[in-house]
C-alpha cells in the first residue's frame, strides 16, 4: 500500500472548508454552551427549588445519553419546535448547520454547567458574605465578583472541555454534515483514498488539540493569584 500525498494537496481547499465548519461549530458550541451552561449553573445553585430541580434534571439527562443520540433527537425535533413556534405546528425544514449549532449548545451546556458550578463552589462562603455586606445586589455580585473568580478557578478545565468539544464535532458525520471529517469522507469515497484522507484529518485534529492542551498546561502554571 502506498500513501499518495498528492491526492491530499489537490483536495486541500475542500478539506479546509470542512475545517472551517468544524471551527464554526466549536466557536458556537463554546460561546453558547458557556452562556447557557452558566445560567444552568446559577439556576442549579438557586434557592428556588423549582428552578434548581429543572436545571439539575436537564444537566443529568444530557450527561446520561450519548451525543449521537442528542444529534438524532435535535435533528428530528428542531423542525417541529420551530414549526410549533412560527408555523402553526407544521414542521419547518431547517438547514443542517442550524440544528448542529443547536445540538452543541444544548449538549455542551450541561457539561459547562457542571464545571462552572464547581467554580462557584470553589469560592469561599466569605466572598458571598463580603458581597452582601457591601450591599452588592445578587446580579452585581455574580457578574463582577463571583463569576470572574469561578471562571478563573476552573479555566483549565473549561479549556480541556473545549478541546473535547472540538473533537466531538466530528460526530456530525452521522447526519452527513461536511465538517473536516465529513469532507475527508466524501473525498475518500469519491477517489478511493481512505488511507490518505483519514491519516490527514487525524494529523490535523492532533495538531490543533495538542497545541491547545499545551496551552492549558502553560495556563495552569500561571494561574495562581498574585503570580502576575
Amino acid at each position: 500500500m502506498k500513501v499518495d500525498l498528492s491526492a491530499v494537496a489537490s483536495v486541500a481547499p475542500f478539506l479546509l472548508s470542512g475545517l472551517l465548519f468544524t471551527i464554526q461549530i466549536t466557536v458556537v458550541g463554546v460561546a453558547g454552551g458557556i452562556v447557557f451552561g452558566s445560567l444552568l449553573a446559577v439556576a442549579r445553585l438557586s434557592p428556588n427549588r423549582l428552578l434548581s430541580a429543572f436545571a439539575t434534571a436537564y444537566i443529568n439527562l444530557m450527561r446520561s445519553i450519548p451525543l449521537i443520540m442528542v444529534i438524532f433527537w435535535v435533528f428530528f425535533l428542531v423542525p417541529w419546535a420551530i414549526g410549533w413556534l412560527v408555523n402553526h405546528g407544521r414542521p419547518v425544514a431547517v438547514g443542517a448547520s442550524l440544528t448542529i449549532y443547536a445540538t452543541f449548545v444544548l449538549f455542551e451546556a450541561a457539561y459547562y454547567a457542571e464545571i462552572v458550578r464547581a467554580g462557584f463552589r470553589s469560592i469561599s462562603t466569605g466572598q458571598y458574605a463580603a458581597c452582601e455586606a457591601l450591599g452588592l445586589s445578587r446580579f452585581h455580585a455574580y457578574v463582577y465578583i463571583l463569576f470572574p473568580q469561578a471562571i478563573r478557578n476552573v479555566l483549565p478545565i473549561l479549556l480541556t472541555q473545549t478541546i473535547i468539544l472540538f473533537q466531538d464535532t466530528s460526530l456530525v458525520y452521522v447526519i452527513s454534515a461536511t465538517d473536516l471529517l465529513g469532507a475527508a469522507t466524501k473525498i475518500a469515497q469519491r477517489d478511493g483514498s481512505l488511507v490518505e484522507m483519514y491519516l490527514t484529518v487525524g494529523v490535523v485534529y492532533f495538531l490543533f488539540c495538542y497545541a491547545a492542551s499545551q496551552l492549558v498546561k502553560w495556563l495552569q502554571g500561571r494561574l495562581a493569584y498574585g503570580a502576575r
Binding site: 466569605g126 458574605a129 463580603a130 455586606a133 452588592l136 445586589s137 452585581h140 465578583i145 473568580q149 493569584y225
Partner: peptide, 27 residues
C-alpha cells in the same frame, strides 16, 4: 453599615484600587 471580616475577603481578581471602588460604583 460597614463590615470587616476575620479572613479579609478581599476580591482576589480585582486590584486593591478596584476592591475599594467596586461597591461605590455599583451600589
Amino acid at each position: 453599615v460597614g463590615m470587616v471580616f476575620q479572613s479579609f475577603e478581599l476580591f482576589p481578581h480585582l486590584s486593591v484600587l478596584s476592591n475599594v471602588t467596586i461597591a461605590q460604583t455599583k451600589v
